[in-house]
Design a protein around this nucleic acid. Structure first.
Lengths: 226, 226
DNA sequence: GTCATTTAGTGTTCTAAATACACTATATAA
DNA sequence: TTATATAGTGTATTTAGAACACTAAATGAC
């Protein structure tokens, strides 16, 4: 492959790394792969890849999502571009990072088929990662925490129909704090984003919960509300 | 110049563009240059430059600040990485963008010495810019508006000593709205960031104003407060 | 079939923050 | 001395956030 638009300037390498979040079993999880090659062979890392010719960083992120998580059409947003010296032992390589939010059931990891064995891992249980990926993960978590407080992005972590308890639990997991049930419901319903459906959800010996859906998906900016 | 760490991957070009804001004559202004070369020769653009070898994007931004605005030690922050196809007619070149906040009196533009004639221009009076720089400017203004509402970055646009009226005016200019004087003072003083000095500022036939300073400079995150 | 258990669902009171609003103080220039 | 320009100050009202406990509806166990 050859750069047809070469200048006589220095061009750093450019990769894209993606923090793919989901909620599973009451935890916030992120997709990690086991690196198949050096550097950091067999170590955990964020899924990513080099930008190809005629591909935007966003395109690359979508490609990574499709290849490593088997999903498309999910919420994705550029985070930050990391380029600390020596972040990559191969040389001057910057990483344009993205984060993606995916409801667990949309994800299709073909177990075993991929050498890199992509897996969702509880963010609280992650030790060291390859490169500066721990830093990227910390940055992504902070962005996620901030963003669910002044936007409606939470919809992108939930199934189409969900209960208010599920919604509240999602907030609690990400913000890592308990929220008062009555205050949560009052405030969230007041935002006018939800509509109740006729359906109910029941599981086990308990009162069934009304299922809600977002009136419209698509991104919206709100006032800060927690 | 030669990339000593070459891989057999495609490397896009990488530039850094910087939105340098200041307040002057009651307006929010940004530093623009007149491009000396093609493409967009003689058109207005954000100051910027290619990343050099062994230089981080942040370093590049500092270099641009020093070269084009003659300042160092100012507030600077990475904004976003723009890489839309065809944003640069020379080919696939991404721009890692930064914004900087500078008190007007710190800036040292050597008039006429530079072929690019860097000038501060009122953001309200800017028509089209080169490349996708209008988009970058819009993004930077939004970030600035948001950021002064939940951080103390406003300090980086003010001189060491300033009056509460100057401070309020800076907020009003950036947010493009009037703020009630009593409420503003009450709220801002309550934050505990300022200390009054013995000095007073007078200009013209009017009561002199107490000069304040920030107790500590350096970035801090606050609650959203307007 | 009743009772124990589990989660769903609901209002009010109190506190804190945001907003709306108008006059006096102190300097200079005319 | 007086007109003018900006500095500086307090209260009342409204709105939003926080704290708090019981009833409702289903199932599983016995």
């Amino acid at each position: 492959m050859q750069n047809s638009k070469t200048k006589d300037y220095f061009n750093p390498g450019v990769t894209v790394d993606v923090a793919i979040f989901t909620i599973e079993d009451g935890s916030l999880k992120i997709l990690l792969i086991k690196r198949a090659n050096e550097p950091f062979k067999n170590k955990l890392a964020l899924p990513g890849g080099f930008i190809h010719e005629d591909e935007t960083a966003h395109d690359t992120a979508l490609r990574v999502l499709a290849d490593k998580a088997g999903v498309a059409g999910v919420y994705i947003e550029q985070l930050y571009t990391f380029d600390a010296p020596n972040r990559d032992p191969r040389g001057q390589i910057m990483s344009v990072t993205y984060f993606a939010l995916v409801p667990r059931e949309k994800i299709n990891i073909e177990e075993g088929r991929q050498t890199e064995q992509p897996k969702f891992i509880d963010v609280e249980k992650i030790a060291a990662l390859s490169f500066d990926h721990s830093e990227i993960l910390a940055y992504a978590r902070k962005r996620l925490q901030d963003k669910i407080q002044y936007t409606n992005v939470i919809y992108s972590l939930l199934p189409k129909l969900f209960t208010l308890s599920q919604l509240q639990s999602t907030y609690e997991i990400i913000l890592d704090k308990k929220i008062d049930k009555r205050n949560f419901r009052k405030k969230f319903l007041q935002l006018g984003l939800l509509e109740a459906t006729e359906k109910k959800f029941s599981e086990g010996r308990q009162r069934p919960a009304v299922l809600y859906r977002f009136k419209k998906t698509g991104f919206a900016e709100l006032k800060k509300f927690f």
